[in-house]
Design a binder for these strands. Structure first.
Length: 421
RNA sequence: GGAGGCUUCGCCUAGUUGGUCUAUGGCGCCGCACUGCUAAUGCGGUUGGGGUUUACGCCCCUCGCGGGUUCGAAUCCCGCAGCCUCCGCCA
């Protein structure tokens, strides 16, 4: 949720943001109107309650006929208060409902437009020239005995897979490398719950437009997280945290679950797009004025990881229309996938400013000791999908795969993954 | 799955015959006074949110959450949640 004061004081900023996202800007005026209705309802109910309290006190002292008269007045007033209160809550509810639908105000420098309107910020490394026809990650993985999508489909359905043997080891190596880097940089490593309550899922902004992406356990009224961002954002909900020593940084290691609704036919081969994968995710709480600098640091840490696994990649400034509900700005790192001849998303870092914290009520005390809303940011350090890029980019003509030096210590020193068949 | 207990303003805590509860006291924290310094002591302040106001201020809500009874609820009633204890079941 955005600050209702911005709606009142700078409605044009919000309209411009909606235009950049390609979304309805009339919502701004509807909200302003509902806000006015809400505030006048509050004022009416407040003053009636004040009157009722005064009267209540005099009833306590009065007796005899006077008391009877006052009691009758009180009864009448109670009815008025009741109706004013129900109008107040109706007004608050209709404002709140629409308010919750309004996405975060985008950063003024984020490129406007849709998915294809991103701006490329940089390229790192160059796609490798192959003197043989490169195999795709599924063929490679099967030959290495590293993964099985067939068994995944048999046991769980489409978009499920087994990581087997060296594949499972490779994923653990990758995630351990990411976790170690995070810890070195002062992050607190966390293994969070992957089932969360509705208010936490809603608080992170995933129950709006993207609700159909989320697995729900109806019997228990819980949601499976699509990223540990959700659990970590909820970690400090309803709290006032200490940010006086700078940003508070967590690295969450978790399995992530996504329904991938509406992606039928896309990326059906291999493990590029799956219902369940593992990820190490950075998550930061900081003061709003620190958020932009922190966003740059998160991006740098993501690039450091991509460098360690020796992948060519580019960094893009994601266009406004392709931002999530909560993000004001987002940078993706996309690694080269040789058999697709394309860059594919490996990491994504978002600056959510105070949008999530406002819903989750996570605050800090400023220099004057006043509670203020914190900013939240997140960014990927490694996921199962990285295996795709690692296998394809480091393959050799005999079907073996070179292990990047940084991963070797986590694979018992192994330099090469060899085909088993 | 069943039974019982607990939940008060950062922490601990008083308050449960409904009305001066505008929530007690202590710790911690902040300010002031006193004082070679520190400590101790004394005085004052210290939940959070919202509405209104140029401002000072005024007002409303907040005793786990949501309803209800009543002119009036921390206090009575109902539902829910969290924590703890016990019983049952179980990897």
């Amino acid at each position: 949720m955005i600050d209702p004061r911005i709606l009142r004081e700078e409605p044009e900023t919000v309209r411009a943001s909606q235009r950049a996202r390609g979304e309805d800007e009339s919502i701004v005026d509807q909200l302003i109107e509902l806000d006015e209705r809400r505030r006048s309802a509050i004022a009416r109910a407040d003053s009636l309650r004040a009157e009722q309290k005064q009267l209540g006190k005099s009833i306590g002292k009065a007796d005899g006929d006077e008391r009877e008269t006052l009691l009758a007045q009180g009864k009448d007033l109670a009815a008025q208060v009741k109706s004013a209160e129900s109008e107040q809550s109706a007004a608050e509810e209709s404002f709140g409902e629409l308010h919750a639908k309004l996405p975060n105000v985008v950063h003024p420098e984020a490129p406007p437009g849709g998915e294809d309107d991103f701006v490329t910020l940089k390229h790192a490394g160059t796609p490798r020239e192959f003197d043989f026809t490169p195999a795709d990650h599924l063929d490679l993985g099967e030959r290495l005995g590293a993964l099985s999508t067939e068994r995944g489909a048999k046991v769980s359905g489409a978009r499920f897979y087994f990581l087997t043997g060296v594949g499972a080891q490779l994923q653990l190596a990758l995630l351990n490398l990411a976790a170690a880097q995070a810890v070195e940089n002062g992050f607190q490593l966390m293994i969070p719950p992957v089932l969360v309550r509705p208010e936490i899922m809603a608080g992170t902004g995933f129950l709006g437009e993207h609700a159909s992406e989320v697995y729900r356990l109806e019997q228990d009224d819980l949601y499976l997280v699509g990223t540990s961002e959700v659990s970590l954002a909820g970690y400090h909900s309803e709290e006032i945290i200490d940010l006086s020593a700078g940003p508070v940084r967590y690295a969450g290691w978790s399995t992530c679950f996504r329904r991938e609704a509406g992606s039928y036919g896309k990326d059906t081969r291999g493990i590029i797009r799956v219902h369940q994968f593992d990820k190490v995710e950075m998550f930061v709480f900081c003061r709003p004025e620190e958020a932009e600098a922190e966003h740059a640091r998160l991006l740098a840490w993501e690039e450091e990881m991509l460098g360690k696994v020796e992948l060519p990649y580019r960094v893009i400034d994601v266009a406004a229309g392709d931002l999530g509900t909560s993000a004001a700005r987002k940078y993706d790192c996309e690694a080269w996938v040789p058999t697709q001849g394309a860059y594919r998303e490996m990491t994504s870092t978002s600056n959510c400013t105070t949008f999530q914290a406002r819903r989750l009520n996570t605050r800090y005390r400023d220099a004057d000791g006043k509670p203020q809303l914190a900013a939240t940011l997140n960014g990927t350090l490694a996921t199962t999908r990285w295996i795709v890029a690692i296998l394809e980019n480091h393959q050799q003509d005999d079907g073996s795969v070179r292990v990047p030096a940084a991963l070797r210590p986590y694979l018992g020193g192994k330099e090469l993954l060899q085909p088993v068949s």
